[in-house]
Amino acid sequence: SKIRITWGDKTWEWDGDDEEVWKRILEWARNLGDEELWRHVKEWVDK
């Protein structure tokens, strides 16, 4: 399956939905430097 994140007018996609993928997404969000996006992603990961 895919994980799709839409933020503003951008959309990103990742293949898979296991823990490793979420770790990569969390790292990606942090590297993007958008605090609010990172917080949202972290909330999803922690669920």
Rank of each mutant, 00 (worst) to 15 (best):
10 K>M: 13
24 R>H: 12
3 I>S: 01
11 T>W: 10
37 L>C: 03
20 E>D: 14
6 T>W: 04
13 E>Q: 06
27 E>M: 09
8 G>H: 11
39 R>I: 14
18 D>G: 14
10 K>P: 00
23 K>Q: 13
37 L>W: 06
35 E>V: 06
4 R>Q: 13
42 K>S: 15
22 W>F: 14
40 H>T: 13
5 I>M: 02
43 E>A: 06
47 K>T: 14
6 T>D: 06
18 D>K: 06
7 W>E: 00
7 W>N: 01
12 W>M: 11
17 D>G: 11
44 W>E: 07
3 I>K: 02
46 D>F: 02
5 I>K: 00
43 E>R: 04
15 D>L: 05
40 H>P: 03
4 R>H: 12
12 W>V: 05
37 L>E: 01
13 E>M: 05
19 E>A: 12
35 E>Y: 07
32 L>V: 13
9 D>I: 01
20 E>K: 11
28 W>K: 01
34 D>L: 09
30 R>M: 11
33 G>V: 05
2 K>E: 10
38 W>V: 15
45 V>A: 15
4 R>M: 13
11 T>F: 09
30 R>E: 15
29 A>V: 07
9 D>E: 11
5 I>W: 05
4 R>T: 14
23 K>E: 12
4 R>I: 14
7 W>P: 00
18 D>V: 08
26 L>W: 06
1 S>Y: 13
3 I>W: 04
15 D>V: 09
42 K>Y: 12
30 R>W: 12
19 E>I: 14
39 R>Q: 15
25 I>C: 00
19 E>L: 08
36 E>Y: 03
22 W>I: 11
11 T>I: 10
44 W>F: 15
22 W>G: 06
18 D>I: 09
23 K>P: 05
15 D>W: 08
21 V>R: 02
8 G>T: 02
9 D>T: 08
1 S>K: 15
15 D>F: 09
17 D>A: 13
9 D>L: 02
39 R>T: 12
7 W>H: 04
23 K>V: 07
28 W>G: 00
20 E>T: 13
7 W>Y: 12
38 W>I: 15
14 W>H: 01
15 D>A: 08
36 E>K: 05
4 R>N: 10
20 E>I: 09
27 E>W: 07
24 R>K: 12
29 A>R: 00
30 R>T: 10
8 G>C: 06
17 D>S: 11
41 V>S: 00
11 T>D: 07
43 E>G: 02
5 I>R: 00
10 K>V: 10
27 E>S: 08
35 E>G: 04
33 G>N: 09
10 K>R: 11
43 E>H: 05
9 D>Q: 09
29 A>I: 04
14 W>N: 01
40 H>A: 13
40 H>Y: 15
21 V>N: 06
23 K>A: 08
16 G>H: 13
39 R>M: 13
47 K>H: 14
18 D>R: 08
22 W>C: 03
8 G>L: 08
35 E>T: 07
27 E>H: 09
18 D>C: 01
11 T>N: 05
31 N>R: 11
8 G>E: 08
46 D>V: 03
43 E>S: 03
30 R>F: 13
38 W>R: 07
42 K>D: 06
35 E>R: 05
2 K>A: 10
7 W>T: 01
12 W>I: 06
7 W>A: 02
6 T>H: 09
39 R>G: 12
39 R>W: 09
